[in-house]
Amino acid sequence: MARMISYKQAINEALDLEMRRDPTVILLGEDIVGGAGAPGEMDAWGGVLGVTKGLHAKHGNRLMDTPLSESAYIGAAIGAAACGMRPVAELMFLDFMGVCFDQIFNQAAKFKYMFGGKAKTPVVIRAMVGAGFRAAAQHSQMLTPLFTHIPGLKVVCPSNAYDAKGLLIQAIRDDDPVIFCEHKALYGSEADVPEESYAIPFGEANIARDGKDVTLVGYGLTVPRALSAADTLARSGVSAEVIDLRTLSPIDWDTVIESVENTGRLVVVDEANPRCSIATDVVAHVTQHAFGALKAAPQMVTAPHTPVPFSPALEDLYIPSAEAIVAAVHKTTGPVKSAA
């Protein structure tokens, strides 16, 4: 029997299971419980979109609401991780990273190396990413490439509820700092998710759909978009393989290369801005390592080189669409006859 739960519930479940398993797991963040010191109900919010709702009743003061001081509490999570805890800090929107970036890229990311291998920093920083919420330029960015650029950080971005649960469990158990990116437009998306605990190893991409003519690579929201493009392409006789990277650092080069060696064509779909992005990274790697297999120039479908606009009329054009993916595939295959 399928057990359909949402991406949001899957994250809640992963946190609950890991808190039960390991007493060193603590949660910190703004309004992750909600109602602290207020006259009404405690657990009033459970996070700004309710992801941690109900965990306070189960785990009490292992959930800590914080003041609006990201440098201090994200830094405190990192410091506690270096001292034997496994904090999961919620940054709400990844855009707020600007406020606390030093603690992450100069501190957490570098302890292990700078200290000659002696330190470990098993911290998870959960944050929402992505556009589609009409939340405008400072609450909608896909900043994944900022983090993949930095050695010492791991970067995860699940595309579905099943992966969200397994990847978050792995992130908490992982001994390195992990930036866990939750796509806000996927919170409601449901998948068949087992009740028990399971961890999905980092650096293992998922082949979301088999195909033989072209390889579509994406992560987060671009995976469902690529799958829908693959449906359209199938109707015109083009068989697209869809690879969900799942983790961006480490990244599963082998699965991507193997697929391109079979299909000979590559289209990378990335919601980040186009320069120095996950898309450019994948295209560069494949071009360098599987050049001989390519039958056409690799294509990239990305957000434009602009901030995220507010107006729905513009935001809808901003996010890579299934139509844009189909058009990019057609560039690699040349004009195809419709199978109608």
């Binding site: 703004e30 909600g34 010191g37 009033a44 003041p67």
Partner: peptide, 12 residues
């Protein structure tokens, strides 16, 4: 008195 749902007494 509030930052989202959190009271000023708690946070400050």
């Amino acid at each position: 008195g509030y930052a989202e749902s959190t009271s000023v007494e708690y946070a400050t």
